[in-house]
């Protein structure tokens, strides 16, 4: 129950806090006046807007009964997210092939798979195809292996 309540209000609180942060940082740039706006004017104005919207959202949620929790689908999010993260981390260090194979393996496991063999073969095949398309044909400058 408490968890559901927290989740219900979390977006509103998060937005208001973000707005506050944006406005605070923005005020460290030169704000200026209406006639001659500095680089800080819009940031502060937009930050304040977001705080107000967050408060309005919060007030709106108060009037709605908490919805039954959606539940967070951990499995697909972890594997899909992890795959992209792995590619971003590995590309500059190990190169195209290791990064791409790791990402494909990761994302394949977002859905139930029958076995390692088919997944591995698929990952190798797709990586090779992607390498030929992007690096060989389109000239994206990235080494196959290594940095």
């Amino acid at each position: 129950m408490l968890r559901t309540k927290i989740l219900q209000f979390l977006p509103a609180v998060l937005l208001a806090v973000t707005g506050l942060g944006v406005a605070a940082l923005g005020s460290s740039y030169q704000v200026g006046s209406l006639t001659a706006m500095g680089p800080g004017f819009m940031p502060v104005a937009l930050g304040v807007c977001l705080v107000l919207l967050g408060i309005a959202l919060f007030a709106g949620e108060l009037r709605i009964a908490p919805k039954t929790e959606l539940g967070f689908p951990l499995r697909p999010v972890l594997w899909v997210g992890g795959g992209i993260l792995a590619w971003a981390m590995l590309i500059d260090v190990l190169g195209f092939f290791p990064a791409s194979i790791v990402q494909l393996l990761f994302s394949s496991f977002a859905l139930p798979q029958e076995g390692w063999r088919s997944v591995l073969i698929l990952a190798l095949g797709m990586t090779l195809a992607a390498y030929i398309l992007f690096v060989t044909l389109l000239g994206v400058p990235v080494p196959a292996f290594g940095s």
Binding site: G83, W87, I91, Q103, L104, S107, T127, A130
Partner: peptide, 19 residues
Amino acid sequence: FPAVLLLISIGVYSVNNSS
């Protein structure tokens, strides 16, 4: 979908060659 996700990584990277 794994293929599309790989395309996304490569596509984003190739704009500025930036991980």
